Computed example of a mutant assay.
Amino acid sequence: MATLFDATERVLLLTGANGGIGRTIVEHHLEAGGSVAGLDFFATPPPPSRPDLEWIACDVTDESMIAQAVAATLARFGRIDAVVHAAGAVGQGPLVEVAKADWDRLIAVNLTSAFLIAKHVQPHLAATRGALVFLSSTNGRNGGSHLSGPAYAAAKAGVLNLNRYLAKEWAPLGVRVNAVAPGPVRTPMLDRLGDDGIAALARSMPTGALTEPEEIAAAVAFLLSPHARSMTGTVLNPSGGLVLD
């Protein structure tokens, strides 16, 4: 995988690190010479740790666990230069079929977690004049559909406005805040659709293809890099044409 910038001595804290997009971002940052603290539930075992990689079990909806994960990152690496919030979960079905408990869970996983991670990394990113990238979705821009459900769409829209808010609030601190809002990405999150459903989804894309995780990792790397030093409050749109800016 080609790297967009030299990440030597740069420490990335990443939520959702064991997901399809998350693991690709981890690999990209390590390949660029950086170190990574990867946070996740780890429902499946993470790959082996190495000197430049720390896996941290964390429920991103639990503020005390977020605080502990940030402290563990600082204890291991001494600094935080970049944060990527890629943790997320999808729902499904029309609104009238969504239980309140499922609504609450999806808002917590997708939106409240973004607030929590931002709250606890802010002073450390200010110390390094670092950058934060949120993973949102086209669902947060075009209203989504029953494939991911109303809570997911509402939460991902909230992430986009949190991105804009923090970009303004943190600019005087020298911290940039941006977002990436992908369309369907070829990861295990789509497995719930089955092979026929995934194929139909790909055919429905204006480009005729799903986005690959490597494309999202490259977009994130660009936003974290010096090449994007004038960009804050931006939403990148690797959506395969589902959203036209």
Rank of each mutant, 00 (worst) to 15 (best):
A2Y: 03
T3Q: 12
L4P: 01
A7P: 11
T8M: 01
L13Y: 07
T15N: 07
G20C: 04
G20F: 04
G22I: 03
G22S: 08
R23M: 09
T24H: 01
I25T: 02
I25R: 04
V26P: 11
V26W: 10
H28C: 12
H29V: 11
L30N: 11
L30F: 04
A32C: 06
S35G: 04
D40I: 08
A43D: 15
P45M: 02
P47E: 15
P48I: 06
R50G: 10
L53Q: 07
L53I: 10
L53F: 09
W55T: 07
A57S: 14
V60N: 07
T61G: 06
M65H: 01
I66K: 02
A67H: 06
Q68R: 12
G78C: 10
R79E: 05
D81L: 08
V83P: 05
A86C: 14
G88H: 11
V90G: 14
G91L: 07
V98R: 12
K100Y: 06
D102F: 05
R105K: 13
R105A: 12
I107E: 08
N110A: 12
L116P: 09
I117Y: 08
V121L: 06
Q122H: 14
A126K: 15
A127V: 07
L132V: 02
L132C: 04
L135D: 04
L135G: 09
L135M: 15
N139R: 07
S145Y: 09
H146F: 05
S148P: 00
P150A: 15
A151K: 08
Y152M: 05
A153I: 05
A154E: 03
A155I: 11
A155M: 13
A155K: 12
K156C: 04
A157T: 06
Y165S: 15
A167L: 03
W170Q: 06
N178M: 10
P182Q: 13
P184G: 07
R186L: 15
T187W: 10
G194H: 12
D196N: 09
D196E: 15
A200Y: 00
A202Y: 03
A202Q: 11
R203G: 02
M205Y: 08
M205R: 10
T207I: 14
T211Y: 03
E212D: 14
V220I: 15
A221K: 02
P226F: 06
H227R: 14
A228V: 10
R229G: 07
G233N: 14
N237T: 13
V243T: 05
L244R: 14
